[in-house]
Amino acid sequence: MVSKIRLEDRECPLSATLGIVGEWWTVLILHDCFDGYTRFDEFQANIGLSSSMLTARLKGLVDRGILERRPYQERPVRYEYVLTDLGRSLRPVLVAMAAWRNAQLAPQERSMILVDARTGREAEPVVVDAHTGERVDGAGYVFAAGPAAGPIMRQRYEGVARRPAPEAAFPAGAPESAAPERA
């Protein structure tokens, strides 16, 4: 079955990202990488994916520049899979996904949490604008057409910056102006 992709989706960074890392197994492989695992047998033991499926997923991540395949043994030749700079840049995405799920659970129901390695204190990650330090999850920040947007994307976002944002854009319990404290 051929899937139909809207022209707009070809330009959308959300669609593009999901096309690269939006699959269940790929996210689990990346999670393992961020936990320090690099070898095929480690991924297979942790994830339980068949050899052929794991090989295909790893190849895709290498082809997209997210992982680098490096030999670690010569006889027989064996490879490890190491995050590239592009791959490491996905860490905040996975952190945000885990935080989103954990925010829906009571603290005692969380099976994995993000902690400050120095203090052991649980961290509460937020996404902020690098220029202002303000949270970007409130209604004050909206998507708009970028410089490379085609006609469909431009039409979708025409005047969006001047439109009032829906109240649903505010996360529960988080005021729009809530910003993390600066050191």
Rank of each mutant, 00 (worst) to 15 (best):
R110M: 06
A99Y: 02
P147M: 13
R91L: 15
E74F: 05
L67M: 08
N46Y: 05
R101N: 01
V62A: 07
P107G: 07
D116A: 03
S52V: 10
I47E: 00
D137Q: 03
S52D: 13
V136K: 03
M112A: 14
R91W: 13
R70W: 10
V62N: 05
V126D: 00
Y81G: 04
T132N: 03
I113E: 03
L58D: 01
S51K: 15
Y79K: 04
S51F: 09
V136S: 02
I152S: 14
L90M: 15
P147H: 15
L58N: 04
A98T: 01
V136C: 02
V62D: 06
A56K: 15
D137T: 06
E74M: 12
Q73C: 10
R88G: 03
I47T: 02
E109F: 00
A148T: 15
Y157T: 02
P92E: 00
E134L: 12
G140S: 07
L54G: 10
D63V: 11
R135Y: 03
G140N: 14
E122M: 10
L61G: 08
Y141R: 10
R64M: 13
L83V: 10
S51A: 14
R156T: 06
R121K: 14
Q155F: 13
P71I: 13
T132R: 09
A139M: 10
Y79P: 02
D63T: 04
R75W: 07
R156E: 06
M153L: 12
A148D: 15
G140T: 12
R91C: 06
A96Q: 00
V62C: 11
G146Q: 12
G133Y: 12
M53E: 15
R75P: 05
A149D: 13
W100G: 11
V95N: 01
R121V: 12
P92S: 03
L54R: 09
G138C: 08
I113N: 04
M112F: 12
V128E: 00
V127R: 03
S89C: 13
R154C: 05
P125Q: 02
R118M: 13
R110E: 01
R64V: 09
M112H: 12
